[in-house]
């Protein structure tokens, strides 16, 4: 089974190309035999119940987990050997904010800016874009979960990544905040995106390709426009 994106024009170098990709933990397979391609600028939405392999897929694409089987190419670079070239071009937003609790939002972002060799003014830019300028001096430990999520989004887009890997990006965000971060991580951001979601209708909106995982296996892979929300609800049964 070979995945395809909705649009017929083939890009010479797809942003993502997976062929039979798999990853196990010990003897248990967390993800197996995943084959798909995603063109640059498109969005892949990933559905599936807890433990289906969504996070494993994202971490694998972010070079945090090495694939155990198959071929994985991200932004034209083969993983894990060329991971070095991929790092720094990927914006990863996982379940954890990856922020130090005792440092302030600005200190955390400045630290990441130095790691990614990004100028300090970019820190203020993204803080402003996520609406955290007012509270950026407070330690992360004292912020609400929604605010921490906004800082995490700021961290993920700090270095202007080409590929965004977003694990339920709108969790803990109120509608106003979700609208505020949309230009950064939404479909309009112009970036290639891989987004996990539990919300069939919301997830399909703005997506080009939909992937359904169940028990680490591909249960559904189709252009988002052709997928019915009912099919996705089926995954959770």
């Amino acid at each position: 089974m070979r995945g395809s994106s909705v649009f017929a024009v083939p890009d010479p170098v797809p942003a993502l190309a997976l062929r039979g990709a798999g990853r196990r933990y010990g003897e248990r397979a967390a993800l197996r035999d995943l084959t798909l391609e995603l063109e640059a600028g498109r969005t892949l939405v990933v559905f599936g119940p807890n433990g289906a392999g969504k996070t494993t897929l994202l971490r694998m694409l972010a070079t945090l987990l090495r694939p155990h089987a198959g071929e994985v190419s991200v932004l034209g670079h083969q993983l894990p050997d060329e991971g070095y070239a991929v790092r720094g071009r990927v914006g990863f937003l996982g379940h954890e904010a990856l922020l130090y609790r005792e440092l302030s939002g600005r200190e955390n972002l400045r630290f990441h800016a130095r790691l990614h060799r990004v100028g300090v003014q970019r820190v203020d830019e993204v803080l402003d874009a996520v609406g955290m300028t007012a509270r950026c001096g407070d330690p992360v430990a004292e912020l609400s979960r929604g605010m921490v999520q906004r800082l995490a989004i700021a961290r993920a887009v700090l270095h202007e990544p080409d590929l965004l890997l977003l694990d339920e990006p709108l969790a803990n965000l109120d509608p106003a905040a979700a609208a505020q971060v949309a230009p950064l991580i939404g479909a309009g951001s112009g970036r290639t995106r891989v987004v996990t979601s539990h919300d069939p209708a919301g997830g399909l909106r703005g997506a080009d390709l939909a992937l359904g995982l169940k028990g680490g296996r591909v249960a559904l892979l189709a252009p988002a426009a052709e997928v019915d929300p009912g099919q996705i609800a089926e995954l959770y049964r």
Partner: peptide
């Protein structure tokens, strides 16, 4: 401990360094 508990390892590993 701070790296392990607060995601410092991941944050570091994601950077091109």
């Amino acid at each position: 401990v701070a790296e392990y508990e607060q995601g410092g390892f991941d944050g570091f590993l994601l950077a091109p360094v």
